[in-house]
């Protein structure tokens, strides 16, 4: 009896197998998450731009170190990025926002600008999408510093800006980062 049962058991154990399975498929692993993150924002009122002559350019600028895009993970897996800006203006002046990006040696890697018309009678909304792909994406990955210059143009009608001036200029922006993470 035993002689009959053991071979049977052995048969069950040996015929049990793992069929039609290919573990090497794991090498094809590729996931493509898309992250969105807030970028720069501001909200300035007209009175903050003290311009008594009505004929001058007012230039405000600021810059920030940006080593985020140098991270190894970003370098390896970021395949596309989009910066989306929205500027809303109710000040009776034309504005231009310049974004200038620099690499570690201080060379400009990329620059772009957003021109916003005067919001005299009603609110003016300007949007801008900057797409980073291929060569431009590499430039973004080389970027370590970003400068933002906001320029207010002179008034066409020569009206100065003071504490009583009305209107605001607001900017909102976000980055959309497209990743492709694979095992290669």
């Amino acid at each position: 009896m035993l002689k009959r049962i053991f071979p049977l058991l052995l048969l069950i154990l040996t015929t049990s197998c793992v069929e039609d399975v290919d573990f090497e498929q794991a090498e094809d692993l590729s996931i493509s998450p898309v992250l969105e993150a807030s970028l720069i924002f501001f909200d300035f009122s007209a009175s903050q731009f003290q311009e008594p002559t009505g004929t001058a350019f007012v230039v405000e600028q600021d810059e920030l170190e940006l080593d985020f895009f140098n991270e190894e993970f970003i370098q390896d897996n970021l395949v596309k990025a989009e910066f989306f800006f929205e500027v809303r203006n109710t000040i009776d002046r034309v504005f231009r926002a310049d974004v200038i990006m620099y690499d570690v040696n201080g060379n400009v890697t990329h620059m772009f600008d957003i021109l916003v018309t005067a919001g005299a009678t009603s609110e003016v909304t300007e949007t801008h999408t900057e797409v980073f792909e291929d060569a431009l994406l590499d430039q973004l990955k080389n970027t370590t510093r970003m400068e933002l210059i906001l320029t207010m143009f002179p008034s066409i009608s020569g009206i100065p800006l003071d504490d009583t001036s009305i209107g605001t200029i607001k900017m909102r922006s976000k980055a959309t980062l497209f990743f492709e993470i694979d095992t290669q």
């Binding site: 993150a37 807030s38 924002f41 300035f44 600021d62 920030l64 170190e65 922006s173 976000k174």
Partner: peptide, 23 residues
């Protein structure tokens, strides 16, 4: 909670630059 970087002249009157703010 992070909502971005507020550059140039921050509204809170702290006189911070974007750089400081970012840091």
């Amino acid at each position: 909670t992070f909502n971005g970087v507020n550059p140039l002249f921050p509204n809170d009157g702290s006189g911070q630059t974007a750089e400081e703010y970012w840091q």
